[in-house]
Amino acid sequence: MEYDPEDLRRLAVKIAGEAAGLLRDIACTGTATRRIKGETFAADVKSESYILDALRHEGVRARVVTEESGVVDMGDDLIALVDPLDGSRNYTNCIPWSSVSIAFAPKGARDISEVIAGAVAPIFYGDPVSFSDNACYIGGSRVEPPGESERFIYVYVEHPEAARLLSDAIVIMGRGFKVRSLGSAALEVTWVGIGRGRAFLDLRPKIRNIDIAAGLGVVRVMGGTYLGPGGERPRIGVDGIERIGTIAVFSRDVPREVIEELSRGPLSSAGQGSPPASTG
């Protein structure tokens, strides 16, 4: 069965938005914050269950790659990458910065660049950001690529050497940049795409494809780019949950020399020896 990307965008907005509303309704309650195991809380499971049921109800035939269940076989027409609760540590501590994201790729897709539609829905405030083809929307309004982005750099870093190299790179970028680490990679990557940030840098080998699949789709259609440690666009699979390693995401207005400097320094040197873990 053929799926129209615009129909998939609307579906992603609908389901992600409904799941975000469900999580908003139970936020800061024992119903949501009960720990199931490890980094998994009751809210993660509840949101994922809702999304899977909603996809079935809509008749979507897809291989669903999702945080808690891994891969759920619901057909072979599409691949759906789902993060039912990105920023779960924020959410379970009543910090209002977390999100739900859903992205769709066609059958047979091998790389995250082949994602054709998706949405990231903030749980606590703000409209979903979504994309399909070459268009991006905030709520129901189409938005144009940003002329100039806010001078925020969203950063995740753990190792002292990576932090030092990052500091040097920010100096090269010039005055006026503000560093933030807010706790929901899906939202922060999306914010870079729509111009509410200049760059997203995860300098730990922890982030996964499901965390940022929809956000990278927004970045791509808005003219941004993303790089791996070698300074080139990395291959990121979509067939199962995959850890990406260090990654840098940039809005369209970042000079090439800045990208090259970051790829020589923080990206290539970051995260050595870090154990895999959830971004929660």
Score class of each variant (00 low, 15 high):
Ile51Asn: 07
Ile116Asn: 10
Cys94Phe: 01
Cys94His: 09
Gly75Trp: 02
Pro106Val: 05
Asp133Lys: 12
Asp133Val: 09
Asn90Ser: 11
Glu144Ala: 02
Phe104Gly: 02
Ser101Lys: 02
Val100Ser: 01
Ile95His: 07
Asp53Ser: 10
Gly118His: 01
Leu78Ala: 04
Ile102Leu: 12
Ala80Ile: 13
Trp97Ala: 02
Asp111His: 10
Ser132Trp: 09
Ile102Glu: 09
Ser69Ile: 01
Val82Gln: 13
Asp53Ala: 08
Asp86Ile: 07
Tyr137Met: 03
Val143Ile: 15
Glu58Ala: 14
Ile112Ser: 01
Leu78Met: 02
Asp53Leu: 05
Asp133Leu: 06
Pro96Phe: 14
Gly140Asp: 14
Ser113His: 08
Ala117Ser: 14
Ala117Leu: 00
Arg63Trp: 10
Glu68Asn: 10
Ala109His: 06
Pro128Leu: 05
Leu81Met: 07
Cys94Tyr: 08
Asn134Glu: 10
Asp111Thr: 08
Pro84Asp: 12
Asp83Leu: 12
Glu114Val: 03
Gly59Arg: 11
Met74Cys: 14
Ser88Tyr: 10
Val64Asn: 04
Ile112Tyr: 14
Ala80Met: 13
Phe104Leu: 08
Gly108Met: 01
Gly75Cys: 00
Val71Ile: 11
Ser88Asp: 07
Phe104Ile: 06
Ile112Met: 14
Lys107Pro: 03
Pro106Met: 11
Ile79Tyr: 04
Val129Glu: 14
Ile95Pro: 02
Ala103Val: 04
Ala121Lys: 06
Ile123Phe: 01
Arg89Cys: 05
Ile138Gln: 04
Tyr50Met: 08
Val71Ser: 15
Pro122Val: 12
Arg89Pro: 06
Val82Arg: 08
Ile51Lys: 10
Gly126Ala: 15
Glu58Cys: 00
Pro84Gln: 09
Arg61Ser: 11
Ser98Met: 10
Ile116Ala: 05
Phe131Trp: 09
Val129Phe: 15
Ala62Arg: 14
Gly87Gln: 14
Ala103Glu: 11
Ser101Cys: 01
Val143Glu: 11
Val71Gln: 09
Arg110Asn: 02
Ile138Asn: 02
Pro96Arg: 15
Asp77Arg: 11
Ser101Arg: 12
Gly147Ser: 06
Gly75Met: 03
Cys94Gly: 07
Ser141Thr: 09
Gly126Val: 07
Ile51Tyr: 03
Gly126Cys: 00
Asp86Arg: 12
Glu67Leu: 14
Gly139Met: 02
Cys136Met: 08
Val82Lys: 04
Phe104Lys: 08
Ser101Gln: 06
Ile138Gly: 02
Ile123Gln: 00
Val65Cys: 01
Ala80Tyr: 12
Arg63Gly: 00
His57Ile: 05
Gly108Trp: 01
Ile116Cys: 13
Ser69Arg: 15
Ile79Thr: 08
Pro106Arg: 01
Val60Asp: 05
Val64Tyr: 07
Ala62Asn: 12
Pro84Glu: 07
Val65Pro: 05
Lys107Met: 09
Ser88Phe: 07
Asn134Tyr: 06
Ser113Met: 11
Val115Tyr: 05
Leu81Val: 12
Gly108Glu: 02
Pro96Asn: 15
Met74Arg: 04
Pro146Asp: 05
Asp76Ile: 01
Val71Trp: 15
Asp53Cys: 06
Val115Arg: 06
Ala103Thr: 09
Pro106Asp: 08
Gly126Arg: 06
Glu114Tyr: 03
Tyr50Leu: 15
Tyr137Gly: 01
Val64Thr: 11
